[in-house]
Simulated assay, not measured.
Amino acid sequence: MLKPVLLALAACLPLSAVAGDTTLARGSDYDFLTRMPTGLGPGISLDHIVARKATPQGDKPQASAVGVLFGLPVPALLRLDLGGKLAYLESDGYASAAMVGGRLTIDLPASTELFAQGFYAPSSAASGSVKSVSDSMVGLRWSPLKLVGVEAGYRVFEVKRNDSQRDRSITDGAYAGVSVAF
């Protein structure tokens, strides 16, 4: 699994010069590392999510994704990023999905920002017996220092299969973490 992610990172290396926020967080039953671009134009998006609870079959569901988001010009105090990402899934079997979506960020007073993001892949954009993949997150970040912040929110990452007994939520709950902007 690490090899495809590293190859995708190398292919997107020129895009990584765009500013971004990297968040390391822990939820009640999951951990994740996410990088989202923050500037105008194209930027690289990275995601790795691991559930801490094992399934009845003994494996721990996880997902890794790499993508490109485009920052669009919007009125002051707002940021809108739209794009897509390719996800590799380990959730009661292996699969991949091409997800599309975006992120809306609203700058608030006192170095605080509110954000919401969502990505989705229907069965036509996923492999194997995957019926749909969705990733939704809403959160609040406070940055007491210009490049460092603390973040709290709620994240749901679901993999639905043709056999509903194999449906899994890799994440579904509140989280807290730290973020670094660079």
Rank of each mutant, 00 (worst) to 15 (best):
P14A: 07
L72D: 09
A19C: 01
D107G: 11
R35G: 07
A87R: 11
L114A: 11
A121M: 05
L72P: 10
P109R: 02
G102Y: 05
D92S: 14
A87W: 08
G41S: 10
V133I: 08
K53E: 13
L24V: 15
L80I: 12
A25P: 11
V138P: 05
R168H: 10
K3C: 00
L7R: 14
R168I: 06
P109F: 00
R155V: 09
D59T: 12
G83Y: 10
Y88R: 13
M1L: 06
P4D: 07
L13F: 06
G177W: 07
P75V: 13
Q57H: 04
D163E: 12
G177E: 07
L80S: 11
S129I: 02
V138K: 01
A63D: 10
G177R: 01
P37F: 00
T55G: 00
E90H: 15
D92W: 02
A10Q: 14
A54L: 06
S136Q: 13
S127P: 08
L89E: 03
K53L: 06
E90W: 03
T171H: 04
P122F: 04
G173S: 09
S169L: 09
G84E: 06
L40H: 04
V130E: 02
Q117H: 02
A8W: 03
G84R: 03
F119K: 01
M99R: 07
R52H: 13
G67H: 08
T171W: 00
A110P: 00
R168D: 09
R26E: 04
G177S: 07
D172G: 09
G173V: 01
G71R: 08
M137F: 00
H48G: 14
D31R: 12
V138N: 02
I49N: 03
H48Q: 12
G173H: 06
R79L: 11
S45I: 00
A8C: 01
S124L: 05
V18G: 13
P56R: 03
M99Y: 01
A97C: 10
A152F: 13
L89R: 01
L15Q: 03
